[in-house]
Amino acid sequence: MSPASTATTGARETTLAKALNLALHDALAADDRVHLLGEDIGTLGGVFRVTDGLAAAFGDDRVTDTPLAEAGILGTAVGMAMYGLRPVVEMQFDAFAYPAFEQLAGHVAKMRNRTRGALPMPLTVRVPYGGGIGGVEHHSDASEAYYAHTPGLHVVTPATPADAYGLLRAAIASDDPVVFLEPKRLYWAKDLLDPARPVPPIGTAAVRRPGTSATLVTYGPSVPVCLAAAEAARAEGWDLEVVDLRSLVPFDDETVCASVRRTGRAVVVHEAQGFAGFGAEVAARVTERCFHHLHAPVLRVTGLDIPYPPPLLEQHHLPDPDRILDAVARLQWDTDPAGEAL
């Protein structure tokens, strides 16, 4: 498989992994400051093949198999960024990224602020995250809350091949550090991708499915789950709107709150454990801003508050359409005159 170039135009059916591969290829071709660092990203092309063919196309100095040490990978990337390069780092799996957290929280997120803008950190940290692929322990964590809680980082997660391409190009072009969370179970999901399409700005949510009854606020691997729930809800007489956040930081209050003010009800859905999770932030923000439009408390459908389960039990942990519909059913429909019309 050799990556296509930007010269290829027009929409084609593409997997999310291939869209990321194209984005990296096009970024490497467009800007010689872009350097890829990671474990097994060269000859092998990455364990998920996201960097397939890139070392052959751009050489070992641009696409580098590093020693196996996540803090070292990110720490050296910081030094490269200090010298004006734009490193793109691959963490092999979510739970293997924790050794790099000190570099991320202590330096990547703070260097611009510490130096009053003299040393920005234009680097991207790609993290395959989330479950649903039958991974054994340490291969399925949803770690977004740690990153989103760290000021100075942008946190982005695509749910479609088109967003994967566009958001990764935007992340690499950004002068701020971006944690780019790639939903593992969507790597092989196919959809149309047109690389010539304008890049969605980081910090904007997308309405994936318009609806009138209630809003499902979600992101990354849970977007298709919410869309499936919305389809199933039609049989119950509910017309659900699905908002895909795409960016957790910066957070698009405007799009989310416009939707909730329209529908009057909201459920936040994510894979990660719920306690002190990102959904708590969404629920609080929506409540603070839309209180008088709400007919029911904002509910959350999340993973359980447990360490990620072994693969044969993960279906009990992950939100599914039934759990989402159960939550929608609890949105106090009988107390809402408008709801009776449904």
Partner: peptide, 25 residues
């Protein structure tokens, strides 16, 4: 001159990365 670094040894990989970047250039 990089900022004074407080978390111990965390600036050492920065020195390596910057040295490598300079060499690549």
């Amino acid at each position: 001159t990089a900022p004074l670094c407080t978390p111990l040894a965390t600036q050492l990989p920065h020195a390596v990365g910057l040295a490598r970047a300079a060499r690549l250039k």
